[in-house]
Computed example of a mutant assay.
Amino acid sequence: MVTVVDVAKKAGVSVATVSRVLNSNYLVTKEKRDKVLKAINELGYVPKTTARNEKGSEKKVIVVVAAAIIHDVIAGIQDFGEQHGYEIMISYQASQTKSPQPWSFLPKEQLGGLIILNMLFNEQELQELSEKVPVVQCGQYTSIPNAYTVTVDDENAAYSAVNHLIKTGKRNIAFIGLGMEDGEVSVSPNFSKDRYKGYRKALEDNGIGFNPGLVKYGDYTFESSAQLAKELIEMQAPLDAVFCVTDNIAVACLNTFKEAGYRIPEDVAVCGFDNQEISEMTSPKLTTVDQPFYEIGYESMRMLEGIIKGEISTGRRLLIEHKLIKRGSTVI
């Protein structure tokens, strides 16, 4: 049986791109869309139809509680859900403040489970929630006993990115993360903490001294990231590369350095994380860590179904393999 994976290989694109084409998403370029449609035609691929519940009963509803809407993650969740007879409901939570449970209107027997996407509950809230309904954390996570999580190995991915910068001859590498560090107290998201650990380990393993002055923290906004880049410039300290924990931060840095007259990557190399669409729209294009968002969503839904069916009863953390995409912002 031909699968979306076969179509992706044939077309030379990611599974996420195939999903976007099948769902008529505007983010796909005409070139990639044509490749996918040609592969679908040549392979005779037929999308799976929604599965029926075994007893013909009403479908279980899976609620995705999201602090950030990541299309490819949602697509992976929806595709698995539709193939296995689940309804998917998306609940966007703009803030981390406690709010009424968006699934409370559902009959208890209809709620299948929750997928928490890049949203952090405190330990007590998450523990209480997990005791009432199956929960899988997707992306960011809160550590509790018997937790179920699907993510990339952020520390190892950051390590490979910084190691790449070092192999290109860079030695004075800055780190820009999210949140803030105040002595021993950290209020950074888990993924930012883990990426910082990877950054530090890469420096240590290559015999490069750590300079705390090259570590900056800000928020998700372009303005904050640009300001941090300006602070690095104004320090007039040796600086030849920057590793950023998101692509948005990296793009702001790249533009700020260019406006200040720096050559990219000769004077300052810039590396991001996530492989968002924006990473291919900069000049030069951005080197970044590719997170297979579609697979993360798909595997989160697969794990949740395993819990629902009683096939999984012990907490686990599934690490999805990352890939470093090397582009012009770090290599000539």
Rank of each mutant, 00 (worst) to 15 (best):
K48N: 11
T49E: 07
T50Y: 03
A51D: 03
R52L: 14
R52M: 13
N53H: 07
E54L: 15
K55W: 08
K55E: 08
G56F: 04
G56N: 07
G56L: 07
G56H: 06
S57E: 09
S57C: 08
E58W: 03
K59F: 14
K59E: 07
K60C: 05
K60A: 14
I62W: 01
I62Q: 03
I62L: 11
I62M: 04
V64K: 02
V65T: 06
V65I: 15
V65Q: 10
V65Y: 09
V65H: 08
A66W: 00
A67E: 04
A68M: 05
A68E: 09
I69D: 01
I70F: 00
H71T: 12
D72Q: 12
D72K: 01
I74Q: 01
A75N: 07
G76H: 00
G76L: 03
I77K: 05
I77L: 02
Q78H: 01
Q78L: 10
D79L: 12
D79I: 14
F80A: 04
G81D: 04
E82K: 05
E82I: 15
E82R: 03
Q83W: 01
Q83S: 14
Q83V: 09
H84V: 06
G85E: 03
G85Y: 01
Y86W: 01
Y86V: 15
E87Q: 08
E87A: 14
I88P: 04
I90Y: 00
I90F: 00
Y92N: 11
Q93N: 12
Q93H: 13
A94T: 13
A94K: 10
A94V: 11
S95E: 07
S95L: 04
Q96S: 15
Q96G: 15
T97Y: 06
K98D: 07
S99A: 15
P100K: 06
Q101S: 15
P102R: 12
P102C: 12
P102I: 08
W103K: 06
W103C: 10
W103R: 07
S104W: 00
S104V: 14
S104Y: 01
F105V: 15
L106I: 05
P107V: 15
P107Q: 12
K108M: 03
L111T: 09
L111K: 07
L111F: 00
G112K: 02
G113A: 10
L114E: 03
L114H: 02
L114I: 10
I115R: 03
I115N: 05
I115D: 01
L117W: 01
L117P: 13
M119A: 14
M119H: 14
F121S: 12
E123V: 14
E123F: 12
Q127L: 12
Q127F: 08
Q127E: 11
E128C: 05
E128Y: 00
L129W: 02
L129D: 09
L129V: 07
S130Y: 05
S130I: 09
S130G: 09
E131H: 08
K132A: 12
K132T: 13
V133G: 05
V133R: 10
V133N: 08
P134H: 00
Q137N: 07
Q137F: 02
Q140E: 14
Q140Y: 08
T142G: 08
T142Y: 05
S143N: 10
S143R: 03
A147M: 06
A147E: 06
T149R: 02
V150W: 02
T151N: 10
